[in-house]
Design a protein around this nucleic acid. Structure first.
Length: 673
RNA sequence: GGCGGCGUAGCUCAGCUGGUUAGAGCGUGGGAUUCAUAAGCCUAAGGUCGGUGGUUCGAGUCCACCCGCCGCUACCA
């Protein structure tokens, strides 16, 4: 029986561009949504821009436009980015919409009726020159603890301590630099604690992954606090009914934006919103990052419970993206915007890469450019695309583009691929895409072995029909693997569908077999990753930001061919025992093209070392030379013998190797300090 | 500081409820091939599973402590 599913991704804020970190979530979600559809389920995907709040207001002011103009522009930019990456929303809406206003007012009214709203005064910073209340983020000053300058109102980057904005020394408005004043104001609070038991119940029943549950336990045990849901004007948002100059805090109406987007879609398409959003007929899932767990696991369901509405079946929480093992950095050029990526690289690369990394857990995932290039080039191009490329053209050029029939052996191979279907589908369902991609990759290995073993390039010379059978098997294998990958690589799949001359494939087609039919001309499926394009993308990401802090007269950043190793201690250095050594003999190594075999004299002892310096040094030039060697390196068994040390040399390798010498007078065996 | 997560081959990561010689892909060395997007196949080397101690017949897997990294710490969007 097919399922009916509604899915959302977190709403990106309308104050900045989509970057590759955001895309982890949207691609994770999009792959899941596409998977559900391919599996024969009905699945709808809703999202929207999160448009309200102080940052949007400030940004619009800075650009001299209205907030509406800003959010309209950003909306189309965001949508363009998503479309560029093949992310297919049923509706990409905005929180600044009538639907959202109505729902926000409705949910608020329910909360009021349930006596879940309280009022009390709070003191907050107000900038008189900007005529605006300042969130903590918009107050800068000196950290009360470590006295670092220019720190946020709530936390200090230098000592990583947290503090109250009132404690900040010499506070300034981050916007205009004026000193803010403290003013009292009445705020509305949602009494979250009233919903504690029901939230615990929800979470106990599998609302989130277990690791997320642990985190939530922490919050529960420290007690749920009331949630400030109002902001004083001027504020870009919805006015709170019955209040003077008060607006809903942006986080109140943001998740409601999911509903608004769904409602807007339903109205445009003649569907019943109540059925889609609020009935048991449809499952509901939210995909979010771990930073907004609090809102989605506590506030949001509490508000829905208060309004007697359905809560989601499950929250799928994912981790953050690091690039080359570190936080995305504007100065390093790893803060890569979606639009910048698209100028240089194929979006399907990133879709495949994230597929290969995502596990459904909350751990961060790392995008290493080296790994990225290797994975795409070897897995996607070398294994998968190449499979099609080594069968398709032969079939079209030499065998009239006609498929034959599978033989027993072929059926066995195809059977193996078909048998993996359930397990691969289970991986997609549970968001363990990495596991799915490993399975698929393993299947491609089996197929490539089959091709090697069958040698169609040999049999074609003598036996066309046997060759046709072999290639028919391969084409059918390609078809199945394409289905397995299609959720992640829709563009790739489409090319193969055209090549095979078939209707759009789904998981149901895994069981069907293509026989005795014509196929179309083979087109290249995917290009290899060009390292230079990756570099160009990183370069451009640096330029996006401009040269940072040039006026600070900072130490010029050194650019090395090989990046600097992490800082080490003197103890680390002392572990390496460097000794002066004299080359006693040097000879070529039979069968090796990079190695020289050296005998070294270290005074009291001798060492036999294999060094990869053959392209740079001739054996006869080395004998008698004094070099520096690592004397306590663990001996390594090489094919040609045991290497007991390592000669110090500089350079990238090959012909460019430069050995370290030492000044006159040093004797073999002396330690280098 | 408190809390959560992580630390497994050069790199990126799998290892379910503890159970035979710890796995994959990439990379590296060697070999046989050449249909294919310099791809594919065979084969070798490479890990005291962050450290120490403990529970157990048996621990990468459980417990304690320590070290290192990341994140959260709620009126921040």
């Amino acid at each position: 029986m097919s399922r009916k599913i509604v899915v959302t991704s977190a709403l990106p804020y309308a104050n900045g561009a989509i970057h590759i970190g955001h895309l982890v979530e949207y691609l994770q979600t999009d792959i899941w949504v596409r998977f559900q559809k391919l599996a024969g389920n009905e699945c709808m995907y809703f999202c929207a821009d999160d448009t309200h709040g102080t940052p949007v207001m400030i940004r619009a002011r800075a650009e001299g436009i209205t907030p509406e103009e800003l959010i309209n522009r950003v909306h189309s930019e965001h949508l363009g980015d998503f479309t560029g990456f093949g992310i297919e929303f049923n509706n990409y809406y905005s929180t600044h919409s009538e639907e959202n206003r109505l729902f926000s007012e409705q949910l608020y009214k329910h909360a009021v009726d349930n006596d879940s709203i309280s009022k009390r005064d709070i003191e907050q910073a107000f900038c008189e020159s900007c005529d605006m209340w300042l969130p903590d983020r918009y107050i800068r000053g000196i950290c009360p603890r470590c006295k670092a300058e220019d720190q946020y109102g709530d936390s200090c980057d230098m000592c990583s301590g947290t503090h109250q904005p009132t404690e900040l020394i010499d506070p300034k408005c981050a916007n205009c630099g004026a000193s803010p004043v403290r003013k009292k104001s009445t705020h509305l609070f949602f009494k979250l604690a009233d919903y504690g038991d029901r939230l615990k119940e929800l979470i106990k029943n599998g609302y989130v992954q277990t690791s997320v549950m642990n985190k939530l336990d922490e919050w529960f045990s420290s007690g749920l606090r009331d949630w400030d849901i109002s902001r004083d004007g001027p504020y870009f948002g919805f006015k709170i009914p019955g209040e003077e100059n008060k607006f809903f805090y942006v986080w109140l109406d943001a998740p409601i934006g999911y509903m608004a987007s769904c409602k807007n879609y339903c109205d445009k398409n003649g569907l019943d919103f109540e059925t889609l959003w609020n009935s048991e007929e449809y499952e509901l899932y939210h995909f979010i990052g771990k930073d907004i767990m609090y809102f989605h696991a506590l506030f949001w369901p509490a508000m829905l419970i208060s309004a007697k509405m359905k809560t989601a079946n499950k929250l799928f929480v994912h981790g953050f993206l690091t690039v080359n093992g570190q936080k995305m950095s504007k100065s390093k050029g790893t803060f890569i915007k979606a639009a910048t990526y698209l100028k240089h690289l194929d979006p399907e690369y990133l879709r495949y890469y994230y597929l290969s990394k995502l596990t459904g857990g909350v751990e961060d995932i790392d995008l290493s450019f080296e790994d990225f290039t290797a994975k795409i080039n070897s897995d996607l191009v070398g294994k998968l695309a190449n499979m099609a490329s080594r069968s398709g053209p032969m079939l079209t050029k030499k065998l009239g583009a006609m498929l034959g029939k599978l033989d027993d052996e072929g059926r066995e191979l195809i059977g193996k691929l078909q048998a993996a279907k359930e397990s691969i589908m289970a991986d997609f369902e549970s968001l363990n895409y990495a596991s799915a991609s490993r399975q698929i990759s393993g299947l491609a290995d089996i197929c490539n072995k089959y091709i090697d073993q069958k040698q169609p390039w040999t049999t074609i010379k003598t036996d066309e029909e046997t060759t046709r059978t072999t290639l028919t098997v391969v084409i059918n294998a390609v078809k199945i693997l394409t289905i397995y990958l299609k959720a992640a690589l829709p563009g790739y799949a489409e090319k193969i569908e055209q090549f095979l001359g078939v209707e759009p494939l789904t998981f149901a087609d895994v069981e069907t077999v293509l026989e005795d039919r014509k196929i179309n001309k083979f087109v290249r499926l995917v290009e290899r990753v060009d390292k230079e394009k990756v570099e160009a993308m990183v370069e451009e990401s640096k330029e996006d930001i401009g040269v940072p802090q040039a006026e600070e007269n900072q130490v010029e950043e050194v650019k090395l061919d090989e990046p600097l190793e992490p800082e080490c201690t003197i103890e680390d250095v002392m572990k390496v025992d460097l000794r002066v050594a004299k080359v006693v003999s040097a000879e070529l190594v039979e069968g090796a093209n990079k190695l020289l075999h050296l005998e070294l004299d270290l005074g009291a002892l001798k060492k036999s070392v294999f060094a990869g310096i053959r392209k740079a040094y001739k054996p006869e030039d080395l004998v008698g030379k004094t070099v520096i060697c690592v004397a306590n390196l663990k001996p390594r068994q090489m094919k040609f013998g045991l290497s007991e040390g390592m000669i110090l040399a500089a350079g990238p390798g090959g012909e460019e190797v430069f050995m370290l010498g030492i000044d006159e007078g040093a004797k073999p065996g002396m330690r280098v300090h």
